[in-house]
Design a protein around this nucleic acid. Sequence first.
DNA 1: GATGAATGAGTGTTCATTCAT
DNA 2: CATGAATGAACACTCATTCAT
Lengths: 190, 190, 190, 190
Amino acid sequence: MFSQKGFHDAKIEDVALEAGIGKGTVYLYFSSKQELLEEIYRYAIQQYVAAIKALAGGEGSTRAKLEAIIAHALGMAHMSREVARFVIEGATGMREEFKVWAVGVKEENLGIIRGMLEIGIQSGELGPVDQQIWAHIIVGTINSLVARALWAPGRVRAEPRELARTVAGQLWSGLGPRDQEEIAGDHRNS
Amino acid sequence: MFSQKGFHDAKIEDVALEAGIGKGTVYLYFSSKQELLEEIYRYAIQQYVAAIKALAGGEGSTRAKLEAIIAHALGMAHMSREVARFVIEGATGMREEFKVWAVGVKEENLGIIRGMLEIGIQSGELGPVDQQIWAHIIVGTINSLVARALWAPGRVRAEPRELARTVAGQLWSGLGPRDQEEIAGDHRNS
Amino acid sequence: MFSQKGFHDAKIEDVALEAGIGKGTVYLYFSSKQELLEEIYRYAIQQYVAAIKALAGGEGSTRAKLEAIIAHALGMAHMSREVARFVIEGATGMREEFKVWAVGVKEENLGIIRGMLEIGIQSGELGPVDQQIWAHIIVGTINSLVARALWAPGRVRAEPRELARTVAGQLWSGLGPRDQEEIAGDHRNS
Amino acid sequence: MFSQKGFHDAKIEDVALEAGIGKGTVYLYFSSKQELLEEIYRYAIQQYVAAIKALAGGEGSTRAKLEAIIAHALGMAHMSREVARFVIEGATGMREEFKVWAVGVKEENLGIIRGMLEIGIQSGELGPVDQQIWAHIIVGTINSLVARALWAPGRVRAEPRELARTVAGQLWSGLGPRDQEEIAGDHRNS
DNA sequence: GATGAATGAGTGTTCATTCAT
DNA sequence: CATGAATGAACACTCATTCAT
């Protein structure tokens, strides 16, 4: 309900009806609407991060892992949107205690990606890339693709795995030309 | 006010006082709080897209233009956050007329990036990249960096131009190693 | 509250407090202040019309029935005022659906009186009067007496039944002299 | 505007525009919206009462004068409605000073009718009727007819003078049968 | 434990009124 | 004199929260 209508436009009664329980019952499990929202975020983000962690820490090449992460996010687009929203919005309106948790999780999430890249660099699979920057690139790319999957579902190629493979391939080779000398060195003089 | 407190937590009275006008005066120029929000979005997004368009269509190498775009977004972090939020959230709660406009602007924005890449490819500056995918990568990366600049300002290197240069450099060369054969072909077997 | 203060000057909160319930509770039973007003009107008018119908359709002479109707209206002065107000004001500001209902009830009310007069004419109790005109005379007279009972309570003879009898007597014999020829025929030449 | 929309639904700005003047200009001539309403009432009622006074005090038979009064009210239906509304509503929400004036005018109005009837009785034109009661009958009948002229304009015979003549005729001869003995004496036993 | 009727704090919006021009 | 942009008091209405059943 929160995803569809937004936090403020979703009434507790709607949420309860959707869950097949009475309005008052919600308050037996959550002390407030705000806490319910935070728990939902917590759950979505924890699930997401745990999945990313598992995928990033698994066996296989870095590229395979990257593809798996992208495909997973696309497959869980709806839940990923909450994560994306969260990455962008921060924790506006949330309680301080939750904000602290949130910043930690964000860092953890970026850290997981960084760790995965680190291993890739050491194994020679990756070039000597800036891991922090690439963590942002990967997270941001996923968010953008997820958002598009949600707001323009018809235009997105349906198969997450295939899209993930293409995206990973593009990230791998970079924007610049492969078979010739870097031309970047003098781009500021042009 | 909307950026700081969120739409629902910012009262019209706060907004008016902040602007140094009376509460009722707001309603001389906007027919509702919702419309005010939409106009703010419209303004922020139009400014943003116009700037991107100018930067993407200007003189200079593709890489220089890309750096300029990233630097601009980082410099306008606050405004860019609205754009980013918008990219992620879509137009939940907005009027249908606004949603239509919004989808159009999003496509336009991606189109501008695609156009810039197209020129780069034709001039040989870029490899034969997938422009749609790269539009997402660029937009997403910017959003992610902007978000971090806002929710963890202390941790971000202060100089947008320098950060932009680094990011562009990373995107240029890609994740994969430069001096050896592509190893992507068999990555799923490794 | 609406009777005392008028619709616009009576706050929902006042009405609720008067009823011994909370402000919000009103909205569990009425969708808006306007609807509450309409329901009050509906109730008052239905009660009134039902009573008139019963009295007009009962046993006894037409004159007795007329007296009973007048006495009843005077006895229910407060409620009758709503009806009177309604007869005069129409349904200004009410919803179209209510207006339709209202016009129907007004016609019904006049129709009841007309029907009663019809029977009186057929039984020879009444002269060959214009029933439509007399319906207006009766309704109007009642309204005027009720209004006076409310705005100048001290000046009104306290006993409704006695007043009703006097009024009916006057209506019965008419303005003109009884013991001589109609002088109306040439009144325009005088 | 007040007649059409009701006092509270007519905005000062509407009234001013209708009058072809600026909103602020209204306040050069009236100290408040309430005072404007009171002045309108005052004007309408004074006009009405003055006209009734002139008609009631003029030359001619009582019946001719009665007809003229009824026809005048019907011809001025719109203005008469304000008077009627006023008769029914009293001065709810008005200032004390206005209420005092209002009660006086109401009495004056009834007094004028009574005076006219008095003369008719003395000249033998009328029977020995109860003047106070008949003042109410006349005023009430007029109000009821005016109201109907306004809320169901299509159903009302168009010509006020003709309708006035019919109404006066009915009032003259009364409800009871003319050509036989009063049967009213025993109506309570029937 | 579960419920939903009742509540009232909170807020978007209107519009009579003011006053600088 | 006339104006209409600006104002803020006032109020209808919503909905998170409570608690008797």
